[in-house]
């Protein structure tokens, strides 16, 4: 493991520690109501989520300590974090999945507001374009495929897709 990865793990474990604390002290107490009748039981509806959240806290703390030790050990061994700057290409590569994700979110929103047909006409071709698809035949194949899938869902599986 390199030092950079160990550092990422430290942040990740920290995130899970905070998440489990939020669950234990805010979400579970406020979002699960236990009545007096339920209190009689030794295992209330709160117990299982509490058990899991406590487990998550314990495991993340262990993971946090382990990552800290690895990070420190690698430092002692003389391994330094390379503070190299990302090039424009690397930035593009790192951010590209999030651009596609944003397009998927837009697709979902358009589906909700205007229906599946307008959403499918607009967004997926943009995704195709982003994926450097430049042949018109590919767009034709895509529309043919979606038309078949649409007919399958609406006419055969009888799903009421707008």
């Amino acid at each position: 493991m390199d030092r950079k990865k160990a550092k990422t793990d430290i942040y990740m474990m920290l995130f899970f520690i905070i998440l489990s604390l939020v669950l234990l002290f805010w979400v579970i107490p406020t979002q699960i109501k236990v009545t007096a009748m339920m209190e009689v039981e030794s295992f209330t509806p709160k117990s299982f989520p509490q058990l899991i959240a406590s487990g998550l806290l314990l495991v993340s703390v262990i993971g946090f300590v382990k990552s800290l030790i690895v990070y420190w050990k690698l430092g002692v061994c003389g391994e330094r974090e390379t503070a190299e700057k990302r090039t424009a290409g690397q930035w593009r590569e790192a951010l590209f999945p999030y651009v596609i994700f944003a397009l998927i979110v837009i697709y979902g929103l358009l589906f909700k507001c205007f229906g599946i047909i307008p959403a499918t006409i607009i967004v997926p071709p943009i995704i195709l374009w982003c994926l450097r698809c430049r042949k018109w035949q590919m767009y034709a194949i895509f529309y043919a495929f979606t038309a078949i899938i649409y007919l399958l869902f609406t006419k055969i599986l009888l799903v009421p897709i707008r």
Partner: peptide, 27 residues
């Protein structure tokens, strides 16, 4: 080519998720 497959997967998954309970919450 993989680039034609990915948008097809997006459409298929979205329609499939909607079909599970005919609800946008699934999407």
């Amino acid at each position: 080519p993989e680039n034609i497959l990915l948008p097809c997967i997006v459409v298929l998954c979205t329609m499939g998720a909607f079909a599970i309970s005919n609800s946008m919450i699934e999407v």
